[in-house]
Each structure stands twice: as structure tokens, then as C-alpha cells.
Simulated assay, not measured.
Amino acid sequence: MSNSSSITEFLLLAFADTRELQLLHFWLFLAIYLAAFLGNGLITAIACDHHLHTPMYFFLLNLSLLDLGSISTTLPKAMANSLWDTRDISYLGCAVQLFLFVFFISAEFCLLTVMSYDRYVAICKPLQYETILGSRACVHMAAAAWGSGFLYAVLHTANTFSLPLCHDNTLDQFFCEIPQILKLSCSHSYLREVGLLVVSACLLFGCFVFIVVSYMQILRAVLRIPSEQRRHKAFSTCLPHLAVVSLFVSTGTFAHLKPPFISSPTLDLVVSFLYSVVPPALNPLIYSMRNQDLKGALRKLITRLNSRRV
């Protein structure tokens, strides 16, 4: 038995015992990470184009930065452990990883809520769009999302790592996650963090309801559009985005508030993978596959790079 002051490192769950499967996991994570990094990186570069300085692309730029941050917080360490056949992460490294992950993931959900409001105003109140979502309002909303994520991360990280930890130092996860650290606590003080997670889940659910209601209003407005092509374009953008948000909320909430009797290492890995890795990898695809402005800006960027080589 030991307390948190004597723990100098944590051991993360290995994906497999055989070297072949460890390398398979490495290459799989590497492919996902490179795809997410390339997609979000391209959107970040394209959204900086002065021709795309609109609220939607400003929020999309922020979303890509948050996606890059969240997936870069978890996957590189998991890949390194699989490649070098190790499991350890230092106590400080675990605290930093937890802080950054909670920061990016919570700020991202706040931003997704803001983006749903942006699309609602753009489609349902187009004549008031520039008045409601001016440049100053957009900056304030984005800053509020980043600031909320930062405060949320500070609160959870400080609360989690203030607990006495004495049930071993092994985390059944591929990154430092709050529920897994709480399992190591030997004090009833962990109920304080559980209560905080419940309050956070309620706030998360409130934002999710706001997003769903916003998209319901958008879909109602879209159904009144006479052009079938424009309706199809709106549906193809809104529905996949709503599906990813639903996946993000449901799996994230389940990972943090699931009953102990249905917990298992395999289930924990799958659920955490779904809310921590899948959304950052899918968001660039969802926002770019039907967006002609992004495609046009990408073609200009490629042409400019080719002309510089020549």
C-alpha cells in the first residue's frame, strides 16, 4: 500500500501481450493520427485564407486546432508505448496529459455548441446573421469556449490529483483518464470528483439538448427550401455533424459515469477510443467533403505551392 506522494509513475494498459499485435496497434494508431493531423492541418491552413474570413470558418479553424490538440495528447504516447513495448508514464506526465485532454475535449464541445448556434442563425435568420455574429461576437464566443475548457481542466485536474492514491498504480486505459485514476483512490474523497463529474454531465447534456434543438430548427428551415440540391447539401452537412456530436456525448458520458458492474478493460478501451480519437479524425472529413469553398481554397493552395517549386 502506498499513497500518492510515493507514486512516481503510472502504468498504462498494454493493448496486447504479443509483439506482433503491439506493432499492429502502432501502425493503426499512426495511420489514424496522420489522417487526423493532415485533415485538421489542411483545414487550419485553408481557413486562414483571407477569402474565408467568415464566422463559420473562424469557428472551424478553432475546432481544427482543438482536434489537433486533443488527439496529439493521447495517441503519440500510446504509439510510443506500443512501439517500444513499454507501459509507463510519469506522475507529472499523467497530470499534464489529463489536464490537456480535458482542456481540449471540453473546449471542443463548448465550441461545437457555438457552431450549432452559428449554423442556426445563418440558415434560420440569414438577414440578421452579420448583426448577431459580428467579428467581436465571434471572438468572444471562441474565447469563452477556450476559457471554459481551461477552467474545467484546472478544476478536474486539481481535484483528481489531490486524492490519496493507494490501490496500485496501474491504469486500465491507453491514456490518463479521470475514472481510471479514481479507481486507485483509497479515500471517500473521490466522491467529490464523482459529484463534479455528474454536474459536468448535466451541463454537457444541456449543451447537447441545445445543439439538437438548433439542428431541428435548421432541418425544419431546410425542408422549406425549394431547391433539392440545396436541401441535400444542408442535410449532408448537418446530419453527419449531429451524428458525431451524439457519439461524442454518449460515449464520453458513458465512460465517466458508467456503473462499476459493467466495467471491463476492453469496454473501457473501446468507449474511450470512440470519444477521444474518432471525432478528431472524422471532423475534417465531415466539414470538407461537401464544402466547395474549402475545396476551392485547397486547389488554390496546391497551385500556389506548385508554382513556388517551379
Rank of each mutant, 00 (worst) to 15 (best):
F205W: 13
V194Q: 11
L203V: 13
L182N: 13
Q217H: 10
S200M: 05
D168R: 08
Y215A: 06
T157L: 02
F235H: 00
A221E: 02
H156L: 15
L204A: 07
H188K: 14
H167G: 00
F161M: 15
F175N: 02
S162M: 11
V213S: 10
F174W: 12
V212F: 07
I225Q: 10
I181M: 04
L165T: 08
H232V: 00
A221I: 00
E193Y: 03
T237E: 11
F208K: 04
K233I: 03
S227Y: 01
A234Y: 02
D172T: 05
C166F: 12
Y215T: 02
G195M: 08
H167N: 09
R230F: 00
V222G: 04
K233D: 08
R231C: 02
L155A: 15
A221V: 01
V209M: 08
L191F: 12
S236T: 07
K183S: 13
R231M: 00
V154M: 15
T237K: 14
S236L: 05
L171D: 07
V222W: 02
L165P: 07
L223T: 09
F205G: 04
L191A: 13
S236C: 09
R220C: 01
T160R: 03
C166E: 13
R224P: 07
I218C: 07
A201I: 05
H167C: 11
R231A: 00
A221W: 00
P164E: 10
A153K: 05
M216S: 15
L223I: 05
I211C: 10
V154Y: 01
S187M: 01
I218K: 03
S189D: 12
T157P: 09
L155Y: 12
L191Y: 15
Y152N: 11
L163T: 10
A221R: 00
L163D: 05
L196G: 09
I178M: 10
A153T: 07
R220P: 01
P179D: 06
E193V: 14
V194S: 05
R231V: 03
L182A: 01
A201M: 00
V199N: 05
Q229G: 12
T170R: 15
T157E: 01
L203E: 12
G206H: 14
L223A: 14
P164Y: 11
S185D: 00
S185Y: 06
L204C: 12
P226N: 08
L203W: 14
E177Q: 08
S185A: 06
R230Q: 06
V212C: 12
D172R: 08
E193P: 06
L223P: 05
S185V: 07
P164W: 10
P179H: 09
F175V: 01
K183F: 13
